[in-house]
Computed example of a mutant assay.
Amino acid sequence: MPKRLDIRLLAPSGYPDDRAAFERGVERLRAAGHRVHGEEVLERVMLRFAGSDAERAADINRFADPSQPLPDMAMAVCGGYGAIVLLEHIDFDGLARRFENESCVFVGHGDFTAIQCALYARSGILSLHGPMLVRDFGGPYLREDMWRHFWQTVLSPSTDVSWACGDDARVRVEGTLWGGNLSALCSLVGTSYLPKLDDGILYIEESGEQAWRIERMLFELKLGGALDGQRAILIGGLGGQRVSEYDNGYDIEHALQRFGQACGLPIVRGLAFGHGQDKWTLPFGAHAVLDAAGGTAHLSVMNYPYVRE
């Protein structure tokens, strides 16, 4: 890795319960030449959270404090639940002022989606929807494609992703790339923390939810106005469903088909991000061009904060 980064760890949601994976992730980052700070979040546990609400909010508000030097990157250690509780306590005005002339790359996924949405909607701060410390960098095996694409995205002003999407996808749009975990997005519907875009390319993923819950949350986005102005929807992993006898064959395919007919937007599937083991890094709030045809989709993303050499 050509540049040595200062990386600060954040735990705005659940506490990291796998100490070995935490330490393995830190060691891999340090072995790549980077400086890692904030390991004390490993020791904070309050109920199911990585510390009190005040402690976790303070971790983010330190980036608004001009007396505190900004790291190159702020990386979430894990997801869980708890980020939404912090939103009323975050100094978004102070963050907006601080980030006018300075930058720091925020990265995470899952419950961190709530923080990313709020940073963009309230402070105009872009971030990266990408791997986290414990499950991704601290896993038993490091996914080389994930690692390589993450650093390519972090260290350059543009990135590209190509994947197999199914022969029925025919899309050519451009706009603002944003999104994340479906349940986290739905938790912000009707609030000032959910971005309102008239040119959005929305990406969605979820883990461990039943097909009918997925359909209900998708319709919640639609009925709540979150899909107004969207130009296309990218669907990532939606694994973990169990089909019961009562479902009579209803599964995630039916849920997506029903939603697709109702929303009237182009839907492209197969993009790996979020909770899956393999994942691409997606710049939240950046300009993107999506092109899908002949069973292959290509996403080009540009104009987002990155770490300069």
Rank of each mutant, 00 (worst) to 15 (best):
K3A: 15
K3I: 13
K3W: 08
R4G: 13
D6C: 06
L10G: 01
L10R: 07
G14T: 14
Y15F: 15
R19A: 09
F22D: 07
A31D: 09
A32S: 10
R35D: 12
V36C: 04
H37P: 00
E43T: 05
F49P: 04
G51Y: 11
A54V: 15
R56D: 02
N61C: 08
R62T: 06
L70C: 06
P71N: 08
V77T: 13
G79A: 03
Y81E: 13
G82W: 06
V85W: 02
V85F: 11
I90N: 15
D93R: 07
D93V: 03
A96S: 12
R98Y: 11
N101V: 09
V105G: 00
G110R: 00
T113D: 10
A114S: 01
Q116I: 05
Y120E: 02
G124R: 00
P131L: 12
R135F: 15
R135H: 08
D136Y: 09
F137K: 04
G138H: 12
R143V: 05
E144Y: 04
H149V: 10
V154Y: 03
R170C: 05
G175E: 08
T191R: 00
L197W: 09
E206C: 05
S207A: 15
A211L: 10
G225Q: 04
L227E: 07
D228T: 15
G236H: 09
G237V: 04
G249L: 12
H254L: 12
A255C: 14
A255S: 12
Q257C: 07
Q257G: 05
R258L: 14
F259P: 02
G270W: 06
G274V: 03
H287T: 06
V289I: 04
G295R: 08
Y304W: 08
R308A: 13
R308E: 15
